[in-house]
């Protein structure tokens, strides 16, 4: 028996998501009384570092031609590794790759699945794990009855814990199916923190009045090393790029800290952000629904408050 975890890499680099996934898998292995084995696909250097997060062994299909993601190829390789290692649980992040893999792997292995879980499983005779449903309005506990289980983990559900040391990397040889999807371009916003991975997010809405006013938001975000986000009407009117749109129809995020500035807090907006650990709302309307979902609130004109908040953070940083 083992817990197999797919550790995602990009352009030969592991991201925080990979360390989160291995940490989750290692803790799951402890719950089940077994070992955690990591598999990585592509030519990422230094795969042995996954041992720090709890992998007892790292398997790698070290082939640069596999660096570009394709759900069919990756599923095939991960399934072969699961079978070769008699895996009882297969873990990955609920990232853009993971979301394309979780269903495929479940079908491939004829395994029950739980997509987007945010807590460790319990194993009191049966395997149960929790995830948010109804866009964060409720939590479901899912019982998986198949011998092998597939689980994808919501980003930021737990912090990577580097407690171990590097381990040996073993080459894993798999039958690789022919590539049917070719990646032509990857366009990422340069320099900034990708929103779904950000621990701190500064988000603003229609209360900003116009795109020309976003300087104060960007300044605050830069100071904090935070990602920027926005409400749907802001993206729809092209004040801000589409990928910043959070909510029911946009991205769902769960940062440690979410600043909602000049956003009313409509239910469809909350659906994408209500799993944030701490929410700070700045709004001039004391009746704004967002205050009900907030931990800290400031009822005032954002154009006064945001620069003051930035100043206060500067002082804090320099103290």
């Amino acid at each position: 028996m083992s817990v197999l975890v797919f550790a995602e890499s990009q352009n030969g680099q592991f991201k925080k998501a990979a360390f989160e996934a291995v940490t989750y898998a290692n803790k799951t292995a402890q719950v089940l009384g077994t070992d955690c084995i990591a598999i990585c696909i592509g030519d990422a250097a230094d795969a042995g570092q996954l041992g720090k997060y709890g992998a007892s062994k790292v398997l790698q299909v070290n082939d640069a031609s596999l660096n570009d993601f394709d759900s069919q190829i990756y599923t095939s390789i991960i399934a072969q590794a699961a079978q070769a290692n008699n895996a009882s649980v297969v873990v990955m992040m609920h990232s853009s790759c993971g979301k394309s893999l979780v269903g495929r792997l479940s079908a491939r292995l004829n395994a029950g699945s739980a997509p987007g879980v945010n807590q460790l499983p319990t194993n009191d005779g049966s395997f149960k794990v929790k995830k948010n449903v109804f866009s964060g309005k409720a939590i479901a506990e899912i019982e998986i009855s198949s011998d092998i289980k597939v689980v994808s983990v919501m980003g930021n559900s737990l912090q990577p814990e580097a407690t171990g040391s590097d381990v040996a990397v073993e080459a894993f040889s798999a039958d690789v199916p022919a590539r049917r999807v070719s990646v032509k371009e990857v366009n990422k916003v340069q320099g900034s923190v990708p929103l779904p991975e950000a621990e701190l997010v500064v988000s603003a809405g229609r209360g900003m009045k116009g795109p020309e006013n976003w300087g104060i938001i960007e300044e605050l975000a830069e100071l904090l090393g935070a990602a920027t986000a926005c409400s749907r009407p802001v993206a729809d009117t092209h004040w801000r790029p589409h990928h910043e749109h959070v909510g029911q129809t946009g991205v769902a995020i769960r940062p440690n800290l979410y600043f909602a500035i000049g956003i009313s807090g409509a239910i469809q907006h909350l659906a994408g952000v209500n799993s944030s650990k701490v929410i700070v709302v700045i709004n001039k309307d004391p009746e704004a629904p967002f205050f009900k979902a907030a931990d800290y609130g400031v009822c005032a004109d954002l154009f006064d408050v945001v620069p003051k908040l930035t100043e206060a953070f500067k002082k804090f940083k320099n103290a």
Binding site: N110, A111, G112, S113, A114, K128, N132, V133, G136, K137, A138, I139, A140, E141, I142, E143, I144, S145, S146, N274, V281, F291, K292, A293, A294, D295, Y296, G297, V298, C299, A300, D304, V305, K308, L309, E311, A312, K315, F316
Partner: peptide, 25 residues
């Protein structure tokens, strides 16, 4: 192979703490 066995509501949020706009520190 997988079944939802139980639902919960998210834990209720504590009351929002209001901060004086003049005191961002």
């Amino acid at each position: 192979l997988s079944t939802v066995v139980h639902y919960d509501m998210p834990p209720a949020k504590a009351e929002c703490k209001m901060i004086d706009p003049e005191n961002m520190e």
